[in-house]
Amino acid sequence: MQEKYVLRLYITGKTPRSEMAISMLRRICDEDFKGQYQLNVIDILEHPQLAEDEKILATPTLIKVLPQPLRRIIGDLSNREKVLFGLDLHPYPTQGDS
């Protein structure tokens, strides 16, 4: 199926903060949106121009590209509830259909 959630995580190298953010985000996605998400992790040290284009200032920065609206979360994502709330994401109820 097509991904409903498109997320981009910008990090700077393998710092403890980067590791923390990646593992937190993968866990949340796997638990709540399994099979419905696409996550790109972008290392700014390797692709500084991408950070320039997206005007990334702090790291880690998570950008929710889809669904709209665009959202940014800065930090190591160490609080699961706040991440879900901040991304404005609600896992689809299992029994529901359109």
């Binding site: 700077t12 190298g13 702090a58 790291t59 940014r72 979360i73 190591d76 609080n79 706040k82 901040g86």
Partner: peptide, 12 residues
């Protein structure tokens, strides 16, 4: 909108 959750740096 920007939300801050946890620690961060200005590495970018």
């Amino acid at each position: 909108d920007t939300v801050i959750i946890g620690d961060y740096d200005l590495g970018a």
